[in-house]
Simulated assay, not measured.
Amino acid sequence: MAELTPPRTVVITGATGGVGGALARRLGGDGWIVYAVHRKLADAEALRDAGLTPVLLDVTDEESIAAAADMVGPRLDALVNSAGIMGQGPVELVPAEAWRRQFEINVIGQAAVIRGFLPALRAAGGRIVNLGAVSARVTPPFFGPIAASKAALSALTQALRMELRHQGVKVSLVEPGAMDTAIFTTADKASADIGWAGSPETQHRYASALDAVRTAAARQPLGPVAPAVNAVVRALTARRPDTLYTTGRDGRVLALLRFLPDGVRDRLLLRAMGVTAQAFETSPPAVVG
């Protein structure tokens, strides 16, 4: 009698988010054992009810990463790094605290998770898929923080891919366009909670331009998460996975803009975001009192 092939195993960080959650349900339905990473204890029951195995893990806490790796065991077929936060705003106005948190979660935390699970991935000849963003290659105005962190993640992924090439672990990067998830709402709330850096005069200088960008963003249709999920599944299951997958119509269009001369690309992006010279020609804020 033929031996039964054991189900494949995958750890998915950000499994309570838009892409991570959809991916966890998809792979669970396909017969994978899904270790669904969450940060809040309250999320465990819903993940378990969905047929997933909840794993409490904070990507910024190496002790929790080590505990999760011990729980998963000595062999792991795949790791998908979907966890991340989105910071946005003018480079001049984003506080240092927000920059540090952006990189702590989106870059340093991803590296820590990879380091924690690599022995098990190596033992199984597994795969790593990192979720980036196409803005890492072509960055619109006021998206510097998220794009900078995703550009760093892209560089990390490229180095890792070559370092693991002869160790039996394949590495892919998925760069989606804008998707209909809660990350934009969360980003707006985080910006409001932290506030802006700079003097009132400096903040006022950007007020009209920020309003224009918000208006332009509100008009932009957000794509579904399905193309990103499908790309991750291909990266996990294809015999020879691509090193890079770009998904979403807007993602592919934005990626193509990198071939334009810088000046032309800048003008197109500024126009698309409604940022004109007039947006910065504002009078000083009124002095109260």
Rank of each mutant, 00 (worst) to 15 (best):
L4K: 12
I12N: 09
G17L: 14
L27R: 11
G31S: 04
I33M: 05
A36R: 06
V37F: 06
H38N: 05
R39Y: 07
K40M: 10
D43I: 11
D43V: 07
A44K: 15
L47C: 04
T53K: 09
D70I: 04
A78W: 07
I85P: 00
M86N: 14
Q88N: 09
V94R: 05
R101I: 10
V107K: 03
I114Q: 12
G125Y: 04
R127K: 07
S135A: 15
A136C: 09
V138A: 03
G144R: 00
L153Q: 13
A159G: 15
E163W: 10
G168F: 05
G168K: 11
E175W: 01
M179D: 02
K189D: 10
A197C: 01
G198P: 01
S199K: 00
Q203V: 00
H204R: 02
R205V: 03
Y206L: 03
A216P: 07
P224C: 12
V225M: 03
P227V: 07
A228G: 05
V232M: 11
V233R: 07
R234Q: 06
T237K: 01
A238I: 02
D242V: 00
T243E: 15
T243S: 15
T247P: 10
R252D: 08
V253M: 15
A255H: 15
L260F: 14
P261E: 03
L268D: 04
L269H: 03
T276A: 03
A277D: 15
E281G: 02
T282H: 04
P284Q: 04
